[in-house]
Measured scan of single mutants.
Amino acid sequence: TIDDAFRAIERAIQAENEGRYREALKHFLDGGEMIVTAAEKEASQKVRNLLLHKGKEVLEWAEHLAEWILE
């Protein structure tokens, strides 16, 4: 659900702030994927587009974090 997705993102932010970057990455990926999944089930085109945009933002952040971890 969207609530689960945002809880995962909150955990990711907390982990990132505490320097637990790999854990943060996992939570960002989980949250982003949950948002995209919820968007695919959404009946309203406007809400679907907003959710897809937010999911994409979260997944892009996860990608940047992963690249930073690997440096």
Rank of each mutant, 00 (worst) to 15 (best):
E16Y: 15
I69L: 10
E40I: 15
E40R: 10
E57W: 11
D3N: 11
L51I: 04
A15R: 02
E33W: 15
S44R: 07
A39N: 03
E71T: 12
F6V: 05
R20A: 02
L59M: 08
G31L: 14
A15H: 07
L70E: 15
Q45V: 09
L50K: 11
R7A: 09
G31M: 06
A12V: 03
F28C: 05
A15F: 09
K54V: 15
H64N: 07
H53Q: 15
E71L: 09
M34D: 01
E60L: 12
E57T: 10
A15Q: 01
D3A: 13
A66P: 01
K46D: 13
T37P: 01
E63Q: 13
K56M: 12
T1W: 10
G32E: 03
L52N: 07
R11M: 09
N49I: 09
R22W: 12
E67M: 09
H53A: 15
G32H: 15
L25Y: 07
W61S: 01
I13S: 03
A43D: 06
A8Y: 08
K26L: 08
E18H: 05
Q45R: 09
R22D: 10
A39I: 09
R7Y: 03
A38F: 08
V36T: 08
I35K: 00
A39L: 12
I69R: 00
A66Y: 12
A62C: 04
T1V: 09
E23Y: 00
E18F: 04
E10A: 13
S44T: 09
K54H: 08
N17R: 13
A62F: 11
D3Q: 14
D30W: 13
A15M: 09
K26F: 08
I69N: 01
L52H: 05
L50V: 09
E10M: 12
E42G: 04
Q14A: 09
G31A: 15
A15D: 02
E10G: 10
K46V: 13
L50F: 07
A24E: 01
I2R: 02
A5R: 00
E57R: 12
L70Q: 14
A66H: 04
E10W: 12
K41Q: 10
K26G: 05
I9C: 06
G55H: 11
R7K: 12
A39S: 04
R48I: 07
F6G: 02
K26V: 06
E33H: 15
E57K: 13
H27E: 07
F28G: 01
Y21A: 01
S44H: 11
N17T: 10
D4I: 06
L50G: 09
V58M: 05
E40K: 15
H27V: 04
A66I: 10
I13Q: 04
E42T: 11
N17L: 14
I35V: 04
E71P: 04
